[in-house]
Amino acid sequence: MAVTPDDVRHVAQLARLEIPEAELAMYVDQLNGILAHMEELRAVGGAGAAAQAESTREGMRLRPDTVGAVPLAVPLESFAAAMRDGFFLVPRLATHEAGEES
């Protein structure tokens, strides 16, 4: 299951990381080097072990529905790089560009 340059390009795109072509081969080699060690897991059984552990895990504690968020010590404007009229700003997107859903 060797990692190809196209795999790295694809994954970099998903992760919004710009990898210069000159560095691509290095990352391909390193990921292959690391993932080669992961192959030992294949020989091990244990299918369903995680699900079994999860099935006995204690459930989460919930929060009451009362207003009172952790306050900010300084206003958003003091750390956001681009704000206007209380909005964060990014370069203009067409409506539904990238078509992501909620």
Binding site: M1, V11, L14, A15, L41, A49
Partner: peptide
């Protein structure tokens, strides 16, 4: 490097071979 690696092991087609397997062995 780690973001690339992590994105790779979660991406379509690899999740079971890597992430799910790792969770089982972690258990």
């Amino acid at each position: 490097r780690r973001i690339l690696l992590g994105t790779y092991v979660l991406s379509a087609g690899f999740y079971d071979a890597y992430y799910r397997k790792a969770q089982d062995v972690r258990a």
